Simulated assay, not measured.
Amino acid sequence: MPFPLSPQSIEALAQVISGGGGNDPTPPIGIYRSGPKIETFMRGCNVDFRVAGSRLPSLVDCLLEINRGYEPEKVLPRIIEAAADPRDFANDPPRHAAVTEYLNGVLRYDGFELLQQGLRVRLVVAGHATPVVERLSGVADTISFDTVGRDLDRALASIDSDPEDAITAACSTIESVCRSILIELGEPLPAKKDVSGLFNAVKKPLGLSPDRSDLDSLIADDVRTTLGGLATVINGIGALRTHAGDAHGRERGYARVDARIGRLAIHAASTVALFLIETWQRKFPARALRRHDDPA
């Protein structure tokens, strides 16, 4: 992600967290917080903050120090997302919309935007989220499946700076969904646990085999063609991870793929993962899909 942020974004973030100056007669942009409340908010973001003097200048100084410090990309997104947490505006949704719009007005100049994804707001690289990616992230938030959101965040964050890592994360998204489906169904994991092997293992229990015979004759060939294409896409993503991703290291003189290929992998993987999750929800509506790590 492109850090550090601009001073304008830091100032806007401080205004939202604090609710503005104590003597400011205008309505607060965010939620007015006293000094102790700001300290509590920052502790909730794993930041040790103490008001020294005036609350708002102290907060700005703290955020500037984080912004100039070591790995701000690991701290500031957490603070920004917490500042726009929908739960704090449950009784005033219009204010939440105004806060998100206000922050996005400055964050977009830094290459970021806040998007509502499911039950939470996420900071993403501006212009990288698509309806499929947003839908997948939202679905992942409404089921017990947090690893999909982490894989997506990792992939989106590295599209431009490290497209090889984006490809690896995109492939991991599909693998995580397949593993969880198999374990929830009590099915054994395949001997070959790459993305193609895992997808082949979930096809039958989810009713996705192209040779199924229960289809309307009018659409049977079309459905089989589409399902066959799905397998081709998955095989392609797996091969791309092997040959262009970073999962197996990089040799000297490694030729980097460009961001277009990273986006292609993310969008294709998101489409497949969303289809698998929605197929699970349709076939097993009473069973939540939970995250399961591969025990092997």
Rank of each mutant, 00 (worst) to 15 (best):
P25I: 07
A90V: 07
V132L: 03
G249V: 02
P295L: 03
G138L: 02
D216N: 13
E187A: 14
E175Y: 05
C45S: 02
R120E: 14
V60E: 14
Y109R: 13
C178K: 06
K203P: 08
E65C: 15
R33L: 01
Y70F: 14
D141I: 00
L107G: 11
I261K: 07
F112N: 08
A268V: 04
E101T: 15
R150C: 05
G30L: 07
L215V: 14
D85F: 03
G249K: 01
R263D: 04
P295C: 00
G19K: 00
W280Y: 02
P94Y: 11
T130I: 12
L215W: 10
Y32S: 03
P7Y: 07
R260V: 14
T100H: 09
L264Q: 00
S58E: 03
S213Y: 00
A220N: 11
L198D: 15
R224F: 05
V75C: 12
I79E: 13
G262N: 02
D211F: 09
G20R: 06
D194H: 08
D92W: 07
G44C: 10
S58W: 01
L230T: 12
P2T: 14
I261Q: 08
A82N: 13
P93E: 04
D214S: 12
I167T: 11
V124Q: 11
D293I: 04
V233T: 15
D216F: 08
L136E: 12
T225M: 09
L227P: 09
D293K: 08
I181L: 07
M42P: 07
D194V: 09
A170Q: 12
Q117V: 14
K192E: 13
L115G: 15
H128M: 11
C62V: 12
T225A: 11
D151S: 05
K74F: 03
V272H: 06
P188T: 11
Q281A: 03
T142K: 09
I31D: 06
I31G: 06
R252I: 12
G53V: 00
K193I: 09
A169C: 11
V139N: 15
L103T: 11
L185Y: 13
R43I: 03
I17A: 09
K37A: 15
V177M: 01
P163C: 08
D88Q: 09
Q8C: 08
K203T: 13
D294I: 02
S172V: 05
D222C: 10
L5M: 02
T271D: 13
I174Y: 10
G118T: 08
K37N: 13
T271C: 10
F275Y: 03
Y109T: 10
S18T: 08
I266F: 05
G238F: 01
D194G: 10
S161C: 09
E164H: 09
V60I: 15
D85V: 03
K192H: 14
N104Y: 05
Q116T: 10
L64E: 11
C62D: 13
Q15F: 05
R256N: 01
V132D: 11
V16H: 05
T279N: 01
K193T: 11
A166C: 13
L59C: 05
K283G: 01
A220S: 14
W280R: 00
G238K: 06
D162R: 15
D246R: 06
A191W: 04
R68F: 01
G19L: 03
S9Y: 06
F49V: 06
R120Y: 14
S144C: 10
F41N: 01
D92Y: 07
D222Y: 09
A201Q: 02
V16M: 02
R250W: 05
T100V: 13
P77K: 04
L56Y: 15
P210M: 04
D141M: 00
G118F: 06
